[in-house]
Design a protein around this nucleic acid. Structure first.
Length: 668
DNA sequence: ATAGGGTTAG
């Protein structure tokens, strides 16, 4: 990277050399050249090279060197130079400093590291740079920004670049109001916002999910013909995607004359995040066929699609790509892999990847803890949480969602209370609905229904239907009809068309033999025009996904599947299986109910898995609803009869069936 | 010469 020093160039030819290095990304080389130049020529020769030198400093995040260069600029009286001042602003926007310049006079800064560099062996940074790096905490971010502002304020003249640098600095530091005010201010003094300005402010509307303001910017971009700029285009795509207007994102993308890898990533990430995972995968494949090189971010955007679909074979293919591209050390990529393997049922592979990460961040820890929470071994989840705390990683609110979910899935009442209190008191995190829901769930499931009711009633923000419905489910388990009715009333007020709760309540009535009320509820559902989401299960066999809905005869193997189920049913009945028809909502004869149960989609998927794979192969099925009680029992029997491990992922967790036992301990 | 866009956990 660093070329052998050539004979000293004449004073005038240093600057172009330095500029060339910086523009090729050889920042360290640019700094070395600058140091050599300082050693052999006077200060005035440095002037033309300063913007590139400051840029290199910014790129390498060398705060102390940047400050001492600032001192050099002030002492030389070049602070009024437009390009130099712009570069200074940018430098402060990129590095982290601990004091605003001026508080400790920058002009008096020691002629430190970069003069020292000149006498060192030219080459890679050892001490001068490492010791000059400031690795301070969050509080210094706004400190740096105040220095950006100060340079800006003291400039004798400013151009669009000066304004854009300040606006971008504000936007990146969450000072959204200021950024937008400044965009208006620059317009008022006659400087028109350009494509740089727009791509800096558009993420603000993405963050605030303000599509109307974002669309105003889009209109302006179209009128000024900035909409073919890839930077503006990518932030427009992202803005619309974050505002759940993925169709607009797509239009912007399709109109981009020359999308770059980041534009591709914006549309792929947007599609996946909006649930259009197939489209996201299609776009990813198209990107590969167009020979556009994927980047680490591309993989962290696509991998969640496999996690969502439970398509382990696709996920493994992506993992292969990632390893071949040498992206697996990227934290974002590794975290998405941990999550993907956990959600595809391979918790042990997830753990391997997690253990090999050099510096897992909060997202990585949380993905792993959530993985255990979903699979059942709550001890592992709690142990990891504790390990994380001892490593001085500060859990955030999502990490607590994960650990509370682990408690709730394992019925650990005391631990749930402990973590909830620790979150509020030790970490000062305001509990959100997800936290209340997890604690209410575990209380309710433990039979402490009244305590759960009080707990939810105490929530200061208004609880959503989903928080109450955890309690409704507990009421069903503990057969408390009075409380169930009270809870259902609350739910139907908030969410009159909540399907799951109607079904649950109707089941509660049916189970108690109160057929009239159950029937009334069903009539009400019909009159509200509610349609039950069809239950669907799918399974991967030989890298192909087979999907089943209840009583779906469309699968080519349907007859074989029913035949196999019949054989299994006979064996089960010999071993003492009695159908539990409590979950069958319809008011029909018992014999018909049994028939309904037999058609449940996960049974079709499991039976298909058994007859289409060699004996002993584990079977992995995913279902879009919760497993019903009877299917859970049946699957336990089947796992024993055919001596197979059966892994079922339903909407809330994984069930690992083996030898007639399920990892959830029949608690879900 | 100096400035800009996209990513992972719920």
């Amino acid at each position: 990277m660093v070329e052998a020093p050539s004979p000293s160039p004449s004073p005038l030819s240093w600057a172009p050399l330095i500029r060339a290095s910086a523009s090729r990304g050889l920042f360290l080389h640019a700094l070395s050249l600058f140091a050599r130049m300082r050693a052999v020529s006077g200060a005035s020769a440095a002037r033309a090279a300063l913007p590139s030198v400051l840029k290199s400093c910014a790129a390498l995040r060398l705060a102390k060197l940047g400050e001492s260069l600032h001192g050099f600029v002030l002492r030389s009286g070049w602070a009024s130079d437009l390009y130099t001042a712009n570069a200074l602003m940018n430098m402060y926007a990129k590095v982290q400093i601990s004091n605003v310049y001026g508080e400790k006079s920058i002009a008096q800064m020691p002629k430190s590291s970069f003069f020292y560099l000149g006498t060192r062996k030219l080459g890679l940074c050892e001490s001068p740079f490492e010791s000059s790096c400031e690795l301070s905490g969050d509080s210094s971010i706004s400190t740096s920004l105040r220095s950006v502002r100060k340079v800006f304020d003291e400039m004798p003249e400013r151009d669009v670049v000066s304004w854009n640098t300040l606006i971008a600095g504000c936007a990146e530091n969450g000072m959204y109001g200021e950024a937008l005010d400044m965009m208006r201010d620059m317009g008022e003094i006659g400087l028109k916002p350009d494509s740089f300005t727009l791509s800096s402010v558009l993420p603000i509307f993405a963050e605030f999910v303000d599509v109307s303001k974002g669309a105003e910017i889009h209109g302006f971009a179209v009128r000024q013909a900035f909409d073919s700029d890839v930077f503006v285009g990518s932030s427009l795509i992202d803005m619309y995607a974050k505002c759940t207007r993925i169709e607009y994102s797509r239009r912007v993308f399709d109109l981009l004359p020359d999308p770059d890898p980041i534009s591709w990533n914006s549309i792929i990430a947007g599609s996946v995040q909006n649930g259009m995972v197939d489209e996201g995968l299609r776009l990813f494949r198209r990107m590969l066929t167009l020979d556009i090189k994927p980047m680490p971010v591309t993989f962290s955007s696509v991998t969640p699609a496999c996690a969502y679909l439970t398509t382990l074979h696709l996920g493994k293919q992506l993992h292969g790509f990632i390893i071949r591209g040498d992206f697996d050390s990227n934290v974002f990529v590794a975290s998405s892999l941990v999550d993907m393997y956990a959600k595809c049922g391979s918790i042990s592979i997830a753990r391997c990847i997690f253990d090999r990460m050099h510096s897992p961040d909060m997202v990585s820890w949380t993905a792993m803890i959530m993985g255990y929470a979903l699979h059942g071994p709550a001890e592992e989840a709690l142990a990891l949480f504790q390990m994380m705390e001892t490593e001085n990683e500060r859990p955030n609110c999502v990490a607590f969602v994960a650990v509370l979910t682990a408690c709730s899935h394992a019925g650990l009442v005391d631990e749930a209370r402990k973590y909830f209190n620790s979150m509020c008191n030790d970490y000062g995190i305001a509990p959100r609905l997800e936290h209340y829901a997890a604690v209410a769930d575990v209380l309710g499931r433990a039979g402490k229904l009244d305590e759960a009711y009080e707990f939810i009633s105490d929530i200061h923000v208004s609880p959503t239907a989903s928080v109450w419905s955890t309690l409704l489910r507990a009421c069903r388990v503990h057969k408390n009809i009075a409380l169930a009715e009270k809870v259902a009333k609350q739910i139907f007020e908030i969410e009159p068309k909540d399907m799951g709760s109607h079904v649950l309540m109707s089941n509660i009535y049916s189970a108690a033999g109160r057929w009239n009320e159950a029937a009334n509820l069903r009539t009400a559902m019909k009159s509200k025009g509610m349609k039950k989401q069809p239950a669907c299960s799918w399974i991967e066999v030989k890298n192909k996904v087979h999907a089943f809905v209840a009583h779906d005869k469309s699968h080519p193997w349907y007859n074989k599947i029913i035949e196999a189920l019949g054989v299994l049913l006979e064996q089960m009945e010999r071993e003492g299986y009695v159908p539990d028809t409590g979950d069958v909502l319809q008011d029909i004869e018992e014999e018909q109910k049994r028939y309904v149960l037999c058609g449940h989609s996960e049974r079709l998927a499991i039976a298909f898995g058994i007859i289409s794979t060699p004996p002993g192969t584990a079977i992995r099925v995913t279902k879009n609803l919760r497993v019903c009680v009877d299917c859970h029992t049946v699957t336990k029997f089947i796992s024993k009869i055919v001596a197979r491990e059966i892994v079922v992922r339903d909407v809330s967790r994984f069930h690992h069936f083996k030898d007639g036992i399920c990892s959830c301990g029949d608690y879900w």
